[in-house]
């Protein structure tokens, strides 16, 4: 039986959702499995984080995002 569209969409989203973030009430942010796109977002949230900026810059080394 064909899966309803919303079910198959959420299954494929689960497979693609590689990063996880946790924001504590004090504003501290934890992240793991950081993709280049997520690194860019995190770097914009805290531009003073030099290590995250370096991770975000890795995007430039990657020609295109790969398909899953």
């Amino acid at each position: 039986m064909k899966q309803p569209a919303n079910q198959s969409q959420s299954a494929s989203l689960r497979e693609e959702a590689a990063s996880e973030i946790l924001i504590l009430s004090g504003g501290k942010i934890f992240a793991h499995n950081i993709t280049p796109a997520m690194a860019r977002v995190l770097s914009q949230l805290n531009p003073t984080d030099a290590a995250m900026r370096q991770r975000a810059e890795q995007q430039n080394l990657i020609q295109h995002e790969l398909p899953n």
Partner: peptide
Amino acid sequence: MEVSDELELMPTFS
């Protein structure tokens, strides 16, 4: 493709 591990290994295909 990930960038969360050690910088000298990034970007990595994990």
